[in-house]
């Protein structure tokens, strides 16, 4: 099934860059530079996700978002903004956006986040799982236990949270900032490779003693938990 994405962005360069990126990834993309038009499209058609710029002619991003949510449209929305202030992010999330990305951004980051949003939207109706499983790696969310190939892997709380985050996004790219947000709940950019070190420790536990590695580094973007062919 082709995923449909709406891009509401008035800057032509950014919009075509994003449009091209998603098209290459096999998405069907609609694009508009006008807030009102965007609101109209978003309420009229079924999209899997919406990329919404904050500053728009016609109707600004936050107003579009509020109108959408007021109209009962639950399509995941990612706000794109040059306003990097933390509080802008908080406001966007409070007003009903599902994620927030500050310009300038790398397409892989946007893609990873949109991918995660769509996935989350799709699983919204399912009952919350109590177990996660990828290949022979199993996680019991209630007992907070991890086993691989039947062998228990002792984990500290952060490691467990990281692995849970990766497993919930299994098969998809998870960026370093997504990990920092998802596991530590901080939104700033740590200057050094702190996340990489955490991942490498996790690898030691999850992959070291096994033939098939599950945690993969995706060059230039982040990590992925998957069974690679």
């Amino acid at each position: 099934m082709t995923r449909k994405i709406l891009i509401v962005e008035d800057d032509d360069d950014t919009a075509s860059f994003v449009e091209r990126g998603f098209a290459e990834q096999g998405y069907a993309v609609d694009r508009t530079g006008d807030g009102r038009e965007g609101l109209f499209l978003a309420t009229d058609r079924a999209y899997d996700a919406i990329v919404l710029d904050r500053m728009l002619p016609g109707l600004d991003g936050i107003s579009v978002l509020k109108a959408l949510r007021a109209a009962g449209v639950v399509t995941p929305v990612l706000i794109l903004s040059a306003m990097g202030a933390l509080d802008e992010r908080v406001r966007g999330l409070r007003d009903g956006s599902d994620d927030y990305l500050v310009k300038p951004f790398a397409f892989v980051e946007l893609h990873a986040r949109i991918d995660a949003l769509i996935r989350r939207g799709a699983s919204r109706d399912e009952a919350a799982p109590t177990r996660l499983q990828i290949a022979d790696l199993e996680m019991d969310l209630l007992a907070r236990k991890v086993t691989r190939g039947g062998k228990a892997i002792p984990m500290q709380q952060r490691e467990f949270q990281m692995l849970e985050f990766l497993m919930r996004h299994a098969g998809r790219v998870v960026t370093r900032t997504m990990l920092l947000e998802g596991v530590w709940n901080y939104h700033f950019d740590p200057q050094t490779n702190v996340i990489d070190v955490h991942i490498s420790r996790l690898r030691q536990k999850v992959d070291k003693d096994f033939d098939v590695p599950l945690i993969h580094t995706v060059r230039g973007s982040g990590y992925k938990l998957a069974v690679e062919e």
């Binding site: 530590w184 901080y186 050094t192 490779n193 702190v194 070190v197 420790r201």
Partner: peptide, 13 residues
Amino acid sequence: ADIVDLYAPTAEE
């Protein structure tokens, strides 16, 4: 505590 937790592994490396 949170930030120490975040940075400690890197420092230990």
